[in-house]
Write a protein that binds this DNA or RNA. Sequence first.
DNA 1: CAGGAAAAATGCGCGCACGCAAGTTTGCGT
DNA 2: ACGCAAACTTGCGTGCGCGCATTTTTCCTG
Lengths: 219, 219
Amino acid sequence: MTTPPPGLRERKKRATRVALREAALRLAVERGPDQVRVEDIAEAAGVSPRTYNNYFASREQAIVSAVTADREARIAAAVAARPADVRLADAVTDAVVEQYAHAGEHDPRALLLIITRTALREAFLDATAGIEPPLAAVLAERLGDTGAPTARVLAASAAAAVRIALEGWLRPAGSAEAAGSLGAAGFVVPAGSLAERLRAALSPLAPAFDAAERLSRTA
Amino acid sequence: MTTPPPGLRERKKRATRVALREAALRLAVERGPDQVRVEDIAEAAGVSPRTYNNYFASREQAIVSAVTADREARIAAAVAARPADVRLADAVTDAVVEQYAHAGEHDPRALLLIITRTALREAFLDATAGIEPPLAAVLAERLGDTGAPTARVLAASAAAAVRIALEGWLRPAGSAEAAGSLGAAGFVVPAGSLAERLRAALSPLAPAFDAAERLSRTA
DNA sequence: CAGGAAAAATGCGCGCACGCAAGTTTGCGT
DNA sequence: ACGCAAACTTGCGTGCGCGCATTTTTCCTG
């Protein structure tokens, strides 16, 4: 369940992936996303362009993944960490809010960039779908997997809710420009409390979580 | 609410879109999806390749859309058509089941093709996301839109559930081959009752629909 | 510690998606 | 009926995603 010994192969793979995503983000921030060719990213990471494509299916994906990182896994872990007697709906909601709270805290320019460019926004939103599999796994465990698709459906629904919350959150930012390397301003971000939006989007699902939980207890 | 007068421009556009998607499907069935270049589709539809790309963002999308057609709108319409006093969850479930019941009834070969080829399956599944917007619209109406994202979340959740049901339904079909123009067999399809899977996937969401409905009644 | 299997990196080639800047068609006001 | 503006089509050019075959690296087992 932990980390046996990672093995060298695995470590190198991770290193390459990290190198690629960081190079992608750095270059995108420095010179603007449209001025970064795949070749540049690959070179900066010290691999061939072809190899780059073995790790990421698109430039947007690479850039965004530097911000998204392994948020999916962190959410799942956070849910699993909650004591077993708290309402499942609350566990999920809190875990999600917690993980998105310090979104892009490390580099405001990255967030600004993603918000501004349409293609990146798109990729960023699509990335939320990634929480489904790990979340489904923990939910299946908590609900005592019956073979029914309940866990997956709830996980996917939560993911969809998160996506909707994010969409609404960054809707205000629609203009162009501001791509120079010196955006510098963190106070330009949409604001409007991401946390509130997340809770609002997830709350309609609470009854479904409650019902599933009830079923699993009586079973 | 109906059709004012469609206008000539609009009619031509629709005609082109239909021509493209039907050409795409026909060619794909005839000679196998990998033997169809964009150029062929465009030519068969009597437009330039560039124009083809103004209508569809990928070959898969074009092919699949011939089967998907306007299922999204039909589902939304079906929901809207149910009397206002039936449980919302039931209305949605029945509407979905009803629309997917005669899936690819017209051309079994098309279904067979989509099931077989991975890229097409992917595109087919992605297409389910398309039900969200129209469904969200009807739900918003039924629930008396409060500005809260409830309707959208429920619609997206339902779409996700449908996707999961479909995934499970066509999992059994994983092999390759059988791409010749004479598949001819309709009894090869996965079977295992799509309807049951759809209901099973949607049922965990019922409590959420009930709760939303209750809220809207008391408000 | 050798040797061979499995996995990953790489090079090459093809078709494709899409931005851009014309050219062409449709719609509408006068 | 005319002509202008907006919508749509088209050709061209660029970088990209990915399948395939080959080479290089990692891993395991005797």
